[in-house]
Simulated scan of single mutants.
Amino acid sequence: MQPPAPKTSDSEKITINLGPVDLGRIDLLVQEGFYANRSDFIRTAIRNQLGTEADAVTRSIERHTLELGLRDIGRAELEAAQAAGELLHVRVVGLARIASDVSADLARATIGSLTVLGALQASAEIKAALRDRIR
Rank of each mutant, 00 (worst) to 15 (best):
L95I: 10
A54R: 15
D101N: 10
L117N: 10
E62G: 11
A107G: 03
I14A: 11
E53G: 07
R97V: 07
T44L: 10
L78I: 01
R47H: 12
N37W: 08
G118C: 02
Q31N: 12
L50P: 05
G112P: 00
E77M: 08
G24N: 10
S11G: 11
D10Q: 10
F34N: 07
R97C: 02
L70A: 09
S103T: 09
Q49N: 14
A45K: 06
A54P: 07
R38L: 01
I46T: 10
Q82K: 08
A128T: 11
A129W: 00
S100N: 11
D27K: 04
G19N: 12
V21M: 11
G74P: 00
L70T: 11
G112C: 03
S60Q: 15
A107E: 01
I16R: 06
Q31Y: 13
L50W: 07
V92A: 00
S100D: 12
L66C: 06
D101Q: 06
L70Y: 15
Q31V: 10
R43S: 11
T115R: 11
L106E: 01
P4C: 03
T44E: 13
L66N: 04
A54V: 13
M1Y: 15
L88E: 04
A36T: 14
T15H: 10
E79Y: 01
S103L: 01
S103Q: 02
V93L: 14
L120I: 05
D10W: 07
A107M: 05
A56I: 09
F41E: 02
L130E: 04
A81Y: 00
L66P: 01
